[in-house]
Design a protein around this nucleic acid. Structure first.
Length: 294
DNA sequence: AACTCTCTCAACCGCAAATAT
DNA sequence: AATATTTGCGGTTGAGAGAGT
């Protein structure tokens, strides 16, 4: 038996949204909040399917959206994140406050791809174009590389290697429940997590997948155990900490659980997570760090 | 002015994961 | 545990705008 349609297509509008529809949606969400997208259209008096409402809100109507062109800094960050994560647009968007996955995806396809090609870099592999024919040679010091992995593969491919490096990140994960231990616990490698992070940082500095460019991603991810309320309820990471080795989200959970603010690691500011990192977004990740005085 | 081509981006679609029953 | 339902994601499409002829 196939899936039932998400809505009664015969009685729903499609295509561009009118101002009146936008206003109805905004008004409804102002009063009732986000969520329950399935029932929202009827409740809000909209002849749209729930998915359409959700998309319209997330990509266009949300008040915290940043409008306008991408900055050079955002360009570079997207490139770096794409080299790390591949086409994980929602994860990339999680690092760019006010930007949506759809927006970044479009921007990537229309601008950044071309930009990289003009630099002589293959936008899929992030390697020089004349080397992409030989990309079977794995040069990264990693056992799992998510870059350019089709969704179906990354979601279904087994993370069976017991010693899992999350490539290019300063954090190393093990694909067992130890990965969710508290900081300072000794891991299977015999080092404390702090030591591992130091070493991973060192590795990161040594290895550069983007052709000699600095790959300090300036990523920062909050310690979920310190205050799990910071993590959005939309993210099931904290509410269902089950470990699914076949699921990419396991890595997200592990990242959230184990990683710490890089600013903090590097000794910027105080002994606490910087305030940029405290602004968790809907993915449950914290914003990437900007300089504290920006 | 009229037509064609190219580009952009909002929106749709199908699928899979997550959640509910 | 099995099935149904909802949500979220990534790929793709197509309408509209702008540029070129």
């Amino acid at each position: 038996m196939g899936r039932s349609p998400c809505c009664e297509k015969a009685h729903t509008n499609k295509g561009a949204w009118t101002k009146e529809e936008d206003q109805r949606l905004i008004n409804y969400i102002r009063v009732h909040g986000e969520g329950c997208w399935r029932s929202l259209p009827k409740a809000a008096g909209l002849l749209r399917c729930g998915k359409s409402c959700r998309l319209r809100w997330i990509n266009y109507l949300r008040p915290d959206l940043k409008r306008g062109n991408f900055t050079e800094e955002e360009d570079e960050l997207i490139i770096k994140l794409h080299s790390l994560l591949g086409n994980k647009w929602s994860l990339i968007a999680g690092r760019l406050p006010g930007r949506t996955d759809n927006e970044i995806k479009n921007y990537w396809n229309t601008h950044i791809k071309r930009k990289l090609i003009s630099r002589g870099i293959d936008p899929q592999t992030h390697r020089p174009l004349n080397q992409t024919a030989n990309t079977n040679t794995v040069t990264a010091p990693t056992e799992l590389d998510f870059r350019n992995t089709p969704t179906s593969v990354s979601k279904s491919s087994s993370i069976k290697n017991p010693s899992l490096d999350f490539s290019y990140n300063e954090f190393q994960f093990k694909s067992n429940t130890d990965s969710l231990e508290e900081p300072n616990c000794t891991t299977s490698s015999g080092m404390t997590t702090d030591e591992e992070q130091q070493e991973q940082l060192h590795k990161q500095q040594q290895y550069d997948p983007s052709n000699g460019q600095d790959l300090n991603l300036e990523l920062s991810i909050g310690i979920v155990s310190a205050d799990s309320s910071r993590v959005s309820s939309a993210n099931s990471a904290e509410s269902k900490p089950k470990v699914d080795n076949n699921n990419f989200q396991f890595l997200e959970q592990a990242m959230v659980a184990k990683a710490v603010c890089l600013c903090w690691q590097l000794g910027f500011g105080t002994s606490e997570i910087c305030r940029n990192c405290q602004n968790s977004n809907s993915n449950g990740f914290y914003s990437y760090c900007r300089p504290l005085d920006s």
